[in-house]
Structure formats: C-alpha cells, structure tokens
Design a protein around this nucleic acid. Structure first.
Lengths: 213, 213
DNA sequence: TTCTTGAATCGACATTTGTCTATTATTCAT
DNA sequence: ATGAATAATAGACAAATGTCGATTCAAGAA
C-alpha cells in the first residue's frame, strides 16, 4: 500500500539500517515506559469496550502518548494485544515461580496457570478467550516443557521438541475451551482433568507406543 | 463508531428486522457465488502478496464484485480468511472421505490431513501457517473426534468432549510446527510421529490414568 | 558539564475502512 | 408470467490507519 512511487532503492546503496527503536529487548527507560503504558492503556480500555471498538488514537490518548509513538513500537493494534498477553502471562508464571523443575505436580501447576490466566483476564467479558492469543501463551508453556525435558533423565525414542509443542497446544486448547463454557467447574478441578489427560502424552517415550505401518 | 445522528427516517414505524443476507447457511445462488468468488479472489491474491498488503477493494475487484458486497458477507478481511480456510480444509477432508469410522489408522489419516493442508496452502510462502487459523481448522478436527467417540463403545471415566478438544489442538499445533520448520520431513512421516504421540491421549480412559490429590 | 544518539512529538497526507441511502437486478413462490 | 423479497450495486461519507519529515527532548557517555 501507499505505493506512491516508492522508488524504493531497495536498501540499495548500502544504506545503513535505520534501526528504529523496535529492538525487541531494550533497557532504555523511555522505551520500557512507553510500552508499559500502551499495554496498561489497552488493558484498561478492554474493561470498558470491545477490542474492535478501540482505536489506536484512544490507546495513545489513554497512555498520554502520541499516536505516532504507538507505531514506533507495534505495527498494529493486534501486535500490542499479543505483546500485552505475553507479558501478563509471563508475569503470572513468574509470580508463581513456575517451572518444570519439581517435575511432579508441575503439569498440574502449569495447567492451572493457563486456566487462571484466562480467568484473570476477565474484567473483559469473555472476548479475549476467543482471540487467538496462542501465539503469546503457547510458546511460554512450550518453553517450560522444553526445560523440563532437559532436566529429565533422557528422552527415549521420541522427539522432546515435538512433545513440548503437542503438550503446550493441548493444554492451551483445553483451558481455552473450559474458559469459554458457561457454568465452569473450578479452575483447580479443570487443571486436574487437563493434567490427567495430558500426562500420558509425556510418558509416551517410557511406554514406547507404536503406530501402524 | 460513526455515530453521526441516525435520524431514522420515516417508514420507521415498526421497521421489520432488516435481516441481512448474513444467514450462515444459504442456498441462494447469488450468495454462494459471491462468497465463492471472494474466497477464490483472496486465494489468488495471496499467491502474489502478503495478507496485510491486500486491501478489501482489491479483493472485491478481483472478484468482480462491489466492495460493499464484501461487507454484506464478512465483517472484515480476517473473517474472509477464516471462512476460506475452513472451506478449503473441509473440502480436503471430504475429498479424502475422512472420518473416524475406521477407527484404526484414522488418527494417522487425520494428522496427515492437517499436515497436507498446511503444505497445500503453500503457493503462498509460509505466511498462512503463522496466522491463527486454528479457529477454522481445529473445530473440524474436533468434530471428527467427537463423532469417533460416539461410535466407540463407551467412554470410561473421562470426558470425551475434552478429549476431542485436546487431541485436536495437539495435532494442529504439531502440524503447524512441522510446517514452519525448514527442511521438513515428509508429511507421511510426520503424520506417523504425531499419531504415535497423540495416541496415548485417546487411550486415557482405557488405562485409567490418575492424578495427584 | 557538554555532546551525541535516538526516542517522543507534532502536523500533515493519501489510503483504507466500515457504514449509509438509494437504486437496480435476480431468485423464488405463486 | 407476475410480484414480493432480497442480493448486488453505486456513490458518498466520517473516521481510522499507516507513513513521513521536521522538530523537541531526554539518556548515557565523554
């Protein structure tokens, strides 16, 4: 879009990369502050109206930042939502000191964490649960399983990477489904059900399951 | 938004519900044709440029439809993408006559179907795999498991619904992960790995796994 | 302190979006 | 074949989006 003769010198003449402030990791207090404020802004607005009815101008206003500043950090509204979700979920995990180290009960704890995240997210009706946040949450869960696999003795015949991916998606899907139903059973109880269902996944290697030819 | 005073004109008295053409199921050939053309349009454009660089005007033009007609059928570009994905995936499943009836080998066949869908989607680089299409694909897979559970003898202690959800998400996540890696192993081989990993999930009831207190 | 870097602001812009109000053309049932 | 119902079109609109160049301001290093 906006193709008014770009005449894009495809970065041709060895243009030094302009390198905007978009470096993912940064310690510059200005950047940290701006991003934090944008995320908080969105979180607050989400308690008042639906995601689609929130404009970037509103987010910027609420954050007392210029609208252009928004684009300095996120390409669009959805990217901010993703970032916010990832941050908040990571904070929840950190708050509980979760990892796969303790190994038993860890599965339950992780499942509970995901369930609780959905529940905590409330404040906003249910909208967020339907909103493709896997990209923000699943990688975090996946990582915990990866680390857990590293600590574990040795992985038998199966790919621990694939195991982590599969388990993470399974847990996320189950928790999301749970959160979307009305008359939910308690999170604790759900976490137990999820753990019970997912556990055999992680034992795959041990029992050496095989498949048809 | 667009709150400019409605000032509903005369004829207002007892306005019959406008009831747009948005009824999900429809046999009206005009509706079917419009939707089909919009989906084909998007599919074609996706082979040429990225999703974000495609405007609704372009989609409408390519479909030789008016832009307003687009909004008669889908609230936004993303909804069309979802619909397109769901349709194409369903067609793939139907083409192969997949269901859970044969019960053994079904798991493998389903996993292969999802892998192949991702692969088939190519034409477009890899963009679509990253794009939160779970909403279009997972429910279809979930349904197959649901039906499979119905045919199955009886479900022991575990919730078949939850099992279907979990298995569907696990398969989708694994297939997506596979498709995003470079130097992919063949789809057949991947489907086998997925089936092997997910199978223990479906046997949960039989082996009566239990969890900590 | 001063200097340099680059983040944040401001104003402006071409485009795109989503929504309206007619009006025309198709479909389907009678 | 006729008419009622409704999908598709056309044009117009306010609002929102994404991008720019120029300027101001704050952080970190000398």
């Amino acid at each position: 879009m906006h193709l008014l003769e770009k005449e894009v010198n495809l970065k041709s003449a060895m243009v030094q990369d302009p390198k905007p402030c978009v470096s993912e990791e940064s310690t510059d207090p200005r950047i940290l502050r701006s991003r934090r404020m944008l995320m908080d802004s969105l979180a607050k607005l989400l308690t008042q109206k639906e995601f689609n009815d929130i404009s970037i101008q509103e987010i910027a206003d609420q954050a007392t930042l210029n609208r252009a500043t928004f684009y300095l950090h996120y390409p669009d509204k959805n990217a901010l939502l993703q970032a916010m979700t990832a941050t908040r979920f990571r904070e929840l995990i950190a708050r509980r000191g979760l990892s796969f180290s303790d190994c038993d009960g860890a599965l339950h704890a992780i499942a509970l964490g995901v369930c609780d995240y959905f529940a905590e997210t409330t404040g906003c009706p249910t909208q967020l649960a339907k909103m493709s946040l896997e990209g923000s949450i699943i990688p975090v869960v996946e990582n915990m399983f990866r680390e857990g696999a590293a600590n574990h003795p040795v992985t038998p015949g199966t790919d621990p990477e694939l195991l982590a991916t599969t388990a993470a998606w399974a847990i996320y899907g189950a928790a999301r489904q749970w959160y979307q139903t009305s008359n939910r059973i308690p999170a604790e109880e759900m976490a137990s059900k999820i753990a019970a269902i997912v556990k055999p996944l992680l034992l795959t290697g041990a029992t050496s399951v095989r498949h048809e030819p």
